[in-house]
């Protein structure tokens, strides 16, 4: 478990990093290193070049932007976990952050690193899917935005170009007083979730749901937005029956199978955790704002 030989690069700016990416073959970006370093040590990843982003200026920040938040790619997960802005504007993310790895890995792991690595059972991609995040990337031709629904490109891979660097993620905020709930099931504290569920709800004064988002993590190669469940929720009254019925639509999903869980158990958990997340979200709706 020693990494194969590689050349280490230490750029100071995004432009420099992109230049290196564009000019070098088989290069890999290093963010917090909580996935890449073990993959190097186990030789699952064998890059010829490692480009370290840790000294690149300007990639680490959490700020209000438009009607939501913008989180720089190199922001440590710990900063997100303890950010008041995140708690205020994206409480779903705030709730999910303590479930990302362990305290020790969150000190070093980055927000963007988790997204770029794109493990489908990781919490950050699941929350980004739930919030319809917009991922800003930059390549030699300039910056571009990728809607999260277009971000996934298969198991552990994204639609970012090989010469692009992830700059930041915009997380549109939901309406004040919205309901949110993040639930996951893992064998042990701190493990990747076998299944996770992220729910967001808004409702009108009549107690009917006006907007709903339900996302499952750990099910397939990417976080899965449950469109049938969302369609069933919108317009329905917020009730145990509504949430149970919406959750039940998750039972038929295609779920992956591994040594930790067969597909049938993941499907079962998808139903259980969706219902829990929806009920939790509903219970948190601000009564004055409807619900």
């Amino acid at each position: 478990m020693k990494p194969p030989p590689f050349t280490y690069h230490d750029p100071a700016t995004v432009t420099e990093a992109i230049g290196l990416l564009a000019s070098l073959d088989n290069a890999k970006l290093l963010a917090g290193g909580q996935s890449l370093m073990p993959m190097l040590n186990m030789r699952y990843a064998q890059p010829d070049h490692v480009i370290d982003l840790n000294r690149v200026e300007g990639l680490s920040a959490i700020r209000e932007a438009g009607d939501g938040l913008e989180i720089g790619a190199m922001t440590r997960q710990r900063e997100v976990e303890f950010s008041d802005d995140v708690e205020r504007l994206c409480p779903l993310l705030h709730e999910a952050m303590p479930l990302v790895g362990h305290r020790q890995t969150r000190n070093r792991g980055t927000f963007g690193g988790s997204l770029a690595h794109f493990d489908s059972s990781a919490e950050i991609p699941t929350v980004c899917a739930a919030l319809d995040a917009i991922v800003r990337v930059q390549g030699p031709g300039g910056a571009r935005d990728i809607a999260f629904k277009d971000f996934a490109a298969g198991y552990l891979s994204t639609s970012m170009g090989l010469d692009e660097v992830l700059l930041s993620v915009q997380l549109p905020a939901w309406g004040a007083g919205h309901g949110f709930g993040f639930e996951e099931f893992a064998r042990r504290h701190g493990d990747f979730a076998i299944v996770s569920a992220a729910a967001l709800l808004e409702a009108g004064p009549d107690g009917r749901i006006t907007r709903a988002s339900l996302t499952l993590g750990g099910i397939g190669s990417a976080p899965l937005r449950m469109a049938p469940a969302e369609a069933a929720l919108v317009g329905a009254p917020g009730s145990a029956e509504t949430f149970a019925a919406a959750a039940e639509t998750c039972r038929g999903i295609d779920a992956l199978e591994d040594i930790h869980a067969p597909a049938v158990y993941r499907q079962h958990l998808a139903v259980v955790l969706s219902r829990r997340a929806l009920e939790k979200a509903w219970s948190r709706m601000d009564a004055d704002k409807g619900g």
Binding site: P38, M42, R188, H189, G190, D191, F192, I259, H260
Partner: peptide
């Protein structure tokens, strides 16, 4: 220690071979 049908070991790291931690 789980094996597949060809005898490949599937639990060869601490993400797949689950030791209980202080939380469990």
């Amino acid at each position: 220690f789980v094996y597949d049908e060809w005898g490949q070991p599937l639990a060869t790291n601490f993400a797949d071979y689950l030791l209980p931690t202080v939380f469990e």
